[in-house]
Amino acid sequence: MTDDARRAALRQSVSVAVATGLYGISFGALSVVAGLSTAQTMALSLLMFSGGSQFAFIGVIGSGGTAGAAIATAGLLGARNGLYGPQVTPLLAANGWRRPLAAQLTIDESTAVATAQADPAAGRLGFWWTGIGVFVMWNLFTLLGAVLGDALGDPRRYGLDAAAAAAFLALVWPRLSGPGAHLSRLVAGGAVAVALALTPFTPAGVPVLLAAAVAIVVGAVAPVRPVEART
């Protein structure tokens, strides 16, 4: 791994950790507003540690859903983390106690940074730095958000909801640009259409998961190309 590759991976890790951590403040505040205690809110960020699942969970609880619905929705949305596992295990080669630790840190952000590196060693570095960095920042800012809670007022006022959308856009962007990403752009467009079309008719979190069906169908029928060069 060159120094440049190492620096690029570290820089991305820190940027992602800070950006993701910052919208942890909106999770903390929204969770308290949804009726969870500060301790319950912290338990979600420490133990569940998957932003989408956490937002989905408090969304169901906050709108009066049952415990069963909240668990199912969080689980459905968390299933994508299971899909990330096979993408990162070849980079990590984690065994023993590192394996459950790596599993807990396998989220959108750590997977995206790890797989965006051209060099496997830089990818490994990116995974751990992003995973641990997001974990620390996410929990610190969740606590801050929960404590501030009502005092902060509406996190929307600070544009934190828009920041979350922009963060996901920035994560998917490198996968959509450049030659060879034609199929990815097709799938992205299909996923957006499916997610928005299903939103009025399905519980929170389900449209995102069903959008994955687009990728599975395209993946099953499209001609297999050599692994796309990562940017």
Binding site: G52, R80, L83, Y84, P86, Q87, D108, T111, A112, T115, A165, F168, L169, L171, V172, R175, L176, L183, S184, V187, A188, G189, G190, A191, V192, V194, A195, L196, T199, P207, V208, L209, A211, A212, V214, A215, I216, V218, G219, A220, A222, V224, R225, V227, E228
Partner: peptide
Amino acid sequence: QTAALVTVALLSALVAV
């Protein structure tokens, strides 16, 4: 390839949602 496309689909859907 399918796993990579699934990632793209989920992240894109998350942007939209």
